[in-house]
């Protein structure tokens, strides 16, 4: 057998391998979907807890502080936070229970919905973090006895950091959704 023929034999042997993995089973799709759903539920729960924290902070501020301006700000936060917290609470209990026969054909649509849900749930978390940071910035000197420089330096930095993180998270999800669009466009 010549050297060239031997090398071609190896190519033939290599390329004649049969596939060992078939497409993902419905059960596997369901398992993965449940994992994503658990993540969504966790994000919404975090958002809800943060909302409750904002409400507690605002209530303490109204009770302890006598400045009208701070009280007005606190009340507006309470109203805003209550709405968002209610929505988070509703979403927490309205997540669909996955059926045992999640079909493979529904996988892409399901994945899209869950990506959008994750995007929304992260957005809710950041919406709470920003008011908390703003609230702390405005009430720091009244609530804590530290140098006035601390809130002026630290809290804006935290706010910028939060906004930066939010931007990164949002960008990541937009990329995933865009890739999914492309994938579906090519498939159709």
């Amino acid at each position: 057998m010549t050297e060239g023929t031997s090398a071609n034999d190896l190519k033939l042997i290599w390329q004649s391998q049969r596939r060992e993995h078939s497409t993902m089973s419905a059960e596997e799709v369901r398992t993965k979907a449940e994992a994503i759903q658990a993540k969504v539920r966790r994000n919404i729960l975090v958002a809800f807890v943060l909302g409750v924290l904002v409400l507690v902070f605002c209530t303490i501020a109204i009770a302890e502080l006598h400045s009208t301006a701070i009280r007005v700000i606190a009340v507006s936060f309470i109203v805003l936070t209550s709405v968002i917290a209610c929505r988070a609470y509703d979403r927490l209990w309205s997540l669909p229970v996955l059926s045992t026969n999640v079909a493979l054909n529904d996988c892409l649509e399901f994945y899209r919905l869950e990506l959008e849900a994750q995007y929304r749930s992260i957005a809710i978390v950041w919406r709470f973090l920003v008011p908390i940071a703003l609230f702390l910035f405005l009430t720091w000197n009244a609530l804590f006895r530290t140098s006035p420089l601390v809130p002026r330096l630290a809290l804006p930095a935290v706010l910028v950091l939060i906004l930066f993180w939010r931007r990164l998270a949002a960008r990541s999800f937009r990329q995933k959704l865009s890739a999914l669009d492309e994938f579906e466009k090519e498939g159709s």
């Binding site: 057998m1 050297e3 031997s6 090398a7 034999d9 190896l10």
Partner: peptide
């Protein structure tokens, strides 16, 4: 590489 691999294989 293919020379060595083919020789070793055969």
């Amino acid at each position: 590489l293919k020379t060595i691999l083919a020789r070793r294989f055969h």
